[in-house]
Amino acid sequence: MIGGMSRIVRTMTTLIFGFILVYGFYVIAHGHISPGGGFQGGAIVASAFALLLVTYGTDQIQSYLSKDLLSILESTGLVLFITFAFLGLGATFFYNFVSNSGGLFGSPTTIGVNPGDLNTGGTIALMNMAVGLEVLAALGVIVLTMSVAAETIQKKEKQ
């Protein structure tokens, strides 16, 4: 783990990493019309981080992916999420004030079976993104912190 893995694995990982990232964000964005959503997409992106950590080793990754940045992202995601909830306060907390209102994500969907439109869902789509941001950052922080800690403990053992 400390040294990372061989060059072939690294190249493959870099290639796959991009695809996983794209797939994760796709799942986040299409949460309201297809299976998936913020949690699933965030988890997929975070597992891509875990893959990077395993292949490249913690030292290299830490310079690209700082824990501080991730925890700020996490807080931002949650603050966005709760803000969308607050904005519904005209009616109640968590009122879906965007849906069926026109505007962005506000167009109504046809009732019954239909292929779906990305521009629907109201706060559901927005909250999906906020939660996706939060989950990917939170799981990323967890993975990063634990791998760094594991490495520190290992180093202490060796001494």
């Binding site: 783990m1 988890a43 975070a46 597992s47 875990a50 950590l53 395993v54 799981l139 967890i142 993975v143 634990m146 791998s147 800690a149 594991a150 403990i153 290992q154």
Partner: peptide, 12 residues
């Protein structure tokens, strides 16, 4: 993810 976390813990 759970497996990754478990592997970190086991390694530590």
């Amino acid at each position: 993810l759970t497996m990754a976390i478990y592997i970190f813990a086991i390694r530590a």
